[in-house]
């Protein structure tokens, strides 16, 4: 008993104050990409060629956050003259087109579907479906339940049955072998239902987009309401996405 109490005392209070304050993230973290349009076009081309995900659209001078895995190759290659990855983790969007960005993102809270806020703003139950995810996106969704993020304090929970859920949170590039199970889970959620896509694989097929075994984005199968980019998205990116979309 004494050990339990001693441990409890040592652990203290660990929950972050987000969204009131933004927790500090280590400097090497790569969040929202911001593009300098004044750069030499040759450099843009060199970055596009080096990008393992072919996420840079040269003529538009933009970067597709749906494809991007935030590896930072373009930032290092251009020494920050073309792309810099900022520490800003608030990068989710409600429209897929907005993922193609030069760093200027629309406010998620304002362009999110407003009727969802009324319906789910005070209580939101999520059913997670891993559809060929590599377990990184799954892990960083799972941590939302730990004391630091404490998702439940916002009235948001992951539930065991789609029948109890308001939304499905999908991770992974949707393998052929998981497609039916995913669709059946979706069907089992009562309407109106929300579809949230988490991670580069789910948004566009990610690193696996050249495989015939996966879909080229969840939106080719289901209507997606919220797009959360990253490989995997930082837990704070997930948290921001959920709070801004449903509550703000």
């Amino acid at each position: 008993m004494l050990t339990i109490l001693k441990n409890r005392f040592e652990q203290g209070y660990r929950t972050c104050n987000y969204p009131k304050e933004k927790p500090a993230v280590f400097p090497r973290y790569r969040g929202k990409p911001v593009i300098q349009k004044t750069v030499d076009p040759e450099m843009v081309k060199a970055c596009a060629d080096a990008c393992p995900q072919d996420a840079i659209v040269v003529d538009k001078m933009k970067i597709d956050m749906g494809r991007c895995i935030f590896c930072g190759t373009c930032e290092r290659l251009s020494k920050g003259e073309f792309v810099t990855f900022t520490g800003d983790f608030e990068i989710s969007t409600a429209n897929k087109a907005d993922l193609l960005t030069d760093g200027d993102l629309p406010s998620l809270a304002q362009h999110a579907k407003q009727h969802f806020k009324k319906l789910f703003g005070r209580s939101l139950q999520l059913r997670q479906v891993s559809a060929a995810g590599c377990n990184a996106c799954e892990a960083d969704l799972n941590v939302l339940a730990t004391p630091f993020f404490d998702l439940a304090r916002f009235g948001i929970n992951f539930v065991a049955s789609p029948r109890h859920a308001d939304a499905i949170v999908v991770t992974g590039p949707v393998s052929r072998n998981m497609k039916t199970a995913l669709l059946q889970t979706y069907e089992a959620v009562p309407e109106p239902r929300v579809v949230i896509a988490v991670g580069s694989c789910t948004l566009t097929g990610g690193p696996f987009s050249h495989s015939a075994e996966v879909a080229k984005g969840l939106d080719t199968i289901l209507p997606v309401d919220l797009f959360i980019p990253g490989c995997p998205p930082h837990p704070l990116t997930n948290l921001h996405g959920l709070l801004a979309f449903f509550k703000a």
Binding site: P52, Q53, N177
Partner: peptide
């Protein structure tokens, strides 16, 4: 259920994609 065709992808991947 998670099959993504990794081994085939690795064979056809460009060298910049291999580590990823």
């Amino acid at each position: 259920y998670q099959h993504r065709g990794v081994e085939s992808l690795l064979l056809t991947a460009k060298s910049k994609q291999l580590p990823m």
